[in-house]
Design a binder for these strands. Structure first.
Lengths: 183, 183
DNA sequence: ATTTATCCCGACTAATCCTATCAACTTTGC
DNA sequence: GCAAAGTTGATAGGATTAGTCGGGATAAAT
């Protein structure tokens, strides 16, 4: 019942991106996303390319570029992301609703395994297709705020704040996280 | 969210074994299990060996040997089988109840992804840890009976019925499935 | 114009999963 | 004792997954 590493990294990156966006940092470079969650940067690159082609995120090239969500976070469901990267939610192909595939058993009509796995599929879908990136980001931010913290990815993009202040920020070492985002 | 082929084949084989047992065929050879569900026999061999070492099934060697359940089917939960072959049910290690594993994110305490995946884990467990092999076999047999059918695996072991009749059965080609098991 | 930080693309390697093959060993029946 | 039907274990190759590497293209800052 595993989620692939690819799927896990995609979700981690998108969640960080959604939180950054909620805190008005819409453009986040790959390096920050990778470092915040300790993910291999070159591998993450491939995954983000796939998400871009799928219309889930968009990118800006050049200096001070980065990745951002292509749509409002409230319109991106967790299930959509998993399906895009890992394929159908169902544990086996013949139990899938969105991408049914014939299996090897002699008659699916009477296959008990298929019945159970359709139950599992629905149980998974009830979680993943119910929640959006926005909801997930909101809950995570609430937890962090309660403890007076800020997402690590936001810390990491602090220093490339306003282009006019880039020089100053480069001189003074990044201020150690004042809780200005904590309501 | 995939189940591995290994896990799928294990479940198919055990379900067939449970149904055969319910119809008084407690000893089923590998060849019948493999053919009934069109599974590669040599791969299935390895899987059954693993299930034997795990105390889920037992085997009898030699002519007229085969595999049988090591415990009553009502005491084998689907979740136990999946865990034995595919590891923990949780999609990612840090969401597992039975085999927790630290993940790469900076603080699990505030990780939104972990929260969702724990929901998914519980949803999966609510299905797989609730049902036993016996229940699954019973449901499948009911469906088959309604249509006047017998599990294919039982057809395949028909001809090696009683040792005294082995010779007769070998001469007459296997009778084409009289519904004697259908109540 | 040059430097710098970033995304983009394609090929390459390593590990794991799936499958097939082959040579023992064990029991039953003649 | 011998042959047939079965399990057991070891091994090798293909397919998928996970991750690496190097060179290019783009845009902002100097």
């Amino acid at each position: 019942m595993k989620l692939s590493k690819k799927g896990e990294y995609a979700l981690r990156a998108l969640l960080d991106l959604a939180m950054a966006q909620a805190l008005d940092r819409t453009l986040v470079p790959l390096s920050a996303l990778a470092e915040a969650q300790k993910m291999p940067a070159t591998f993450l690159e491939q995954i983000l390319a796939q998400l871009r082609q799928a219309g889930i995120l968009s990118s800006t090239r050049g200096k001070y570029g980065g990745y951002s969500l292509a749509r409002p976070a409230s319109e991106i469901h967790i299930g959509e992301i998993v399906r895009q990267i890992d394929g159908p939610l169902a544990p086996i192909g013949c139990a899938s609703v969105t991408a049914y595939e014939r299996c090897s058993c002699p008659d699916e009509e009477h296959c008990g395994l298929r019945l159970v796995m359709m139950d599992v599929r629905n149980a998974i879908s009830n979680v993943l297709d119910r929640y959006t990136l926005a909801q997930l980001a909101e809950v995570t931010l609430q937890h962090l705020r309660r403890d007076g913290m800020v997402p690590k990815v936001v810390e990491l993009v602090r220093h490339l704040d306003l282009s006019t202040r880039a020089k100053v920020a480069a001189q003074t070492p990044p201020p150690p996280m004042e809780p200005e985002f904590c309501i």
